[in-house]
Amino acid sequence: MSDAEADSDRARVAVRAAAEGAAIAADSFRTDLAVENKGTKTDVVTQVDRDAQAAVIETIRNARPDDPIVGEEDDALKEVPESGPAWIVDPIDGTNNYVGGIRAFGTAVAAVDDGEPVGAATVCPALSDTYRVGPAGAFRNDEALSVSDCDDPEAATVCPTFWWDFDRRDQYDAACREVVHRFGDMRRFGCAQFELALVASGALEGALTNLRANPWDTVAGVQLIRQAGGVVTDLEGERWRHDSTGLVASNGAIHDDLLAAAREIDG
């Protein structure tokens, strides 16, 4: 099997695995859920998260039994290996939305090789949308994705993404301030993978944070944006990696403005 064929195969496995996890999440959506706190009042988890991750991992293991798996819940790895193939799993991204009955949540699965994504999928079952990316490009369901062509910051819509905890609310405040003063409008959906997918689809012109985000919250969406023609960098303007500090994702046309806004978050 050639490298291209192997990447295509892993991209298909990512779609299947994400669909399996999303189906479990969908079955319990808007039901009576037992909710636990993992560390803070806003960091919640349910048994459905664990069950969805187990289903994702089983699907991956059936196809690639020896590959390491990085995942948000339980005893999965928490760091992406620097070499070789690996998988990155978020069983329910947007768990707070899920618990609250808000449809913006999804199961995200990314396949990486030497830390670089080669295929990924984010399945949002309550929205009936599957975002997928592989060697053939980026798609929402069967529609090819392309970032927005908007090049006017005052017409752009931008999302301050990820979560600034209570000890960093000055940065949360600064991020929102920078967005509303520099750009046409602001959106925030509480599900990072969905927000990144919206940049890839052209619904948003950009998303930004100064934080180092978890790989399960980012890698699938970053690859969607790149394959859809967008740009994703760190705060220095260098190509974003899974271990970068800050994430600045845009359609490319407003990237310099977005980068300037992100650099102001820390004051």
Score class of each variant (00 low, 15 high):
Asp3Val: 15
Asp149Asn: 12
Thr209Leu: 09
Glu73Arg: 01
Thr46Gly: 00
Asp49Gln: 02
Val112Phe: 11
Leu127His: 14
Val109Tyr: 11
Gln53Trp: 00
Glu178Tyr: 09
Pro81Met: 06
Ala228Trp: 04
Phe162Gly: 14
Val232Tyr: 04
Ala192Met: 15
Ala25His: 03
Asn37Phe: 09
Met186Trp: 06
Val158Asn: 07
Phe194Asp: 07
Val232Cys: 05
Pro135Leu: 01
Pro215Glu: 05
Ile24Gly: 01
Arg226Lys: 08
Thr157Asp: 07
Val89Leu: 03
Trp216Tyr: 13
Ala220Val: 08
Val48Met: 02
Arg241Phe: 11
Ala25Cys: 02
Ala228Met: 02
Ala136His: 10
Pro85Ile: 05
Val118Cys: 11
Thr157Tyr: 09
Asp243Ser: 13
Val199Arg: 10
Asn97Ala: 06
Glu20Cys: 11
Pro160His: 08
Ala17Pro: 04
Arg169Asp: 11
Trp87Leu: 01
Ile57Pro: 00
Val56Arg: 00
Asp51Arg: 09
Gly134Ala: 03
Glu72Pro: 02
Phe189Trp: 14
Ile57Val: 12
Phe183Trp: 03
Asp43Asn: 14
Leu33Thr: 00
Glu143Ile: 06
Arg182Met: 01
Ala23Val: 03
Asp67Cys: 07
Thr46Phe: 02
Val89Lys: 04
Asn214Lys: 15
His181Tyr: 10
Pro81Glu: 05
Asp90Phe: 08
Thr40Glu: 01
Lys41Ser: 11
Tyr98Ile: 00
Glu236Ile: 06
Ala63Ile: 01
Val222Thr: 06
Glu195Thr: 12
Ser83Leu: 10
Asp152Val: 14
Pro117Leu: 07
Glu58Lys: 09
Glu79Trp: 11
Glu238Met: 10
Gly252Ser: 01
Gly84Arg: 10
Val80Ala: 07
Ile92Ala: 01
Ala207Lys: 14
Ala111Pro: 02
Asp217Ser: 15
Thr46Cys: 00
Pro85Asp: 05
Ala55Ser: 00
Thr107Ile: 04
Asp170His: 14
Ser128Gly: 13
Ser244Asp: 07
Ser148Ile: 03
Gly206Ile: 10
Gly106Asn: 05
Leu235Gly: 00
Val15Lys: 03
Val118Gln: 11
Trp216Asp: 03
Cys191Ala: 10
Arg61Pro: 02
Arg103Thr: 13
Ala23Trp: 03
Asp149Ser: 14
Arg168Pro: 09
Glu143Gly: 06
Ala63Phe: 01
Val199Asn: 07
Pro135Cys: 02
Asp67Lys: 07
Ala19Leu: 06
Trp87Val: 03
